[in-house]
Amino acid sequence: MRRRGYRLLPHTADIRLEVCGGDLSELFAESVSALFSLLADRRRVRAAESRTLRISGETPEDQLFLLLREALLLFTADRFLVRSARGRMNESGGTVEVSGEPFDLSRHSVLREIKAVTAHGLVVERVPEGHVARFILDV
C-alpha cells in the first residue's frame, strides 16, 4: 500500500476511492485533495487564496464525512477550486487549510459534476503504514 495519495476502486454507477495518509491529518488533507483532483484539473488551479475547513465529529468516519461535505461546498456553493490541502489535528478536532482560487470557466476545466459525498460504505482504518479511508462520491 502507498503511504499517501488515492486510487479508484471498482463501482458500477459512482466513484469509489481509497485514500492513504501517514496520520489522520494527512489522510484528511489527502482526501480533500483527491476530491478536487476528481472534480477539476488541479494543475491549472493557482494557490491564490486560502480557506480553512474545520474538522468536527466524534469518530474519524464522522470527521471525514463532514469534512468532505464542507470541502465539496467550497466548489458547489462558493465556486472555489482547491489546489492543495494541509491538515492539522488538535484536541478540539483540527483543521484542513486549503489553497486555491475562484472557479474561472475560461481557465479551469471541470472534469465532472460531483453531486455529493455519501456515507454509504465510508470507512477509516488504521493500517501498518498509517491510515486508509474508502468512500463513494455520487456523480
Binding site: 463501482h11 458500477t12 459512482d14 455519501t118 456515507a119 454509504h120 460504505g121 463513494i136
Partner: peptide
Amino acid sequence: IHWGYGFPI
C-alpha cells in the same frame, strides 16, 4: 437495479 447508496438505484 444497480448499486446505489442506502437504497439501490
